[in-house]
Simulated assay, not measured.
Amino acid sequence: MKLRLILSFFLFTTCFTAFGQEKKNAVIVEKGLIKVSVMYPYAEGKTFNMEYYETKHMPMVAGFLGANLVKYTIEKGIASGIPNQPLPFMAIGTFYVKSLSDYQAAIAPNRDGIRADFSNYTNITPVILVSEVIK
Rank of each mutant, 00 (worst) to 15 (best):
I6P: 00
L7Y: 10
F10K: 02
F10W: 11
F10E: 00
L11W: 12
F12D: 03
C15E: 00
F16D: 02
T17S: 15
T17R: 14
T17D: 03
A18I: 15
A18E: 05
A18R: 13
F19W: 08
F19Q: 01
Q21V: 15
Q21K: 10
E22L: 08
E22F: 11
E22M: 13
E22V: 00
K24I: 05
K24P: 03
K24F: 15
N25V: 07
N25E: 09
N25S: 07
A26F: 09
I28H: 07
I28E: 07
I28F: 10
I28R: 15
I28A: 09
V29D: 02
K31C: 10
I34P: 02
I34L: 02
K35G: 02
V36Q: 00
S37K: 06
M39W: 04
Y40N: 08
Y40L: 03
Y40G: 04
P41K: 12
A43T: 01
A43V: 01
G45L: 12
K46T: 12
T47C: 06
T47S: 14
N49F: 04
N49Y: 08
M50E: 12
M50N: 08
E51A: 14
Y52P: 02
E54Q: 12
M58G: 05
M60A: 12
A62G: 07
F64P: 01
V70M: 11
T73V: 03
I74S: 10
I74C: 05
E75W: 01
I78N: 00
G81L: 12
I82G: 04
I82C: 02
P83K: 10
P86V: 01
P86E: 15
L87Q: 13
L87W: 09
P88A: 06
F89E: 05
M90S: 13
M90D: 04
M90P: 03
I92P: 00
I92T: 13
G93P: 13
G93Q: 09
T94K: 04
T94W: 03
F95T: 01
F95A: 12
F95K: 02
F95E: 01
L100E: 10
S101P: 05
S101G: 03
S101M: 11
D102C: 06
D102W: 04
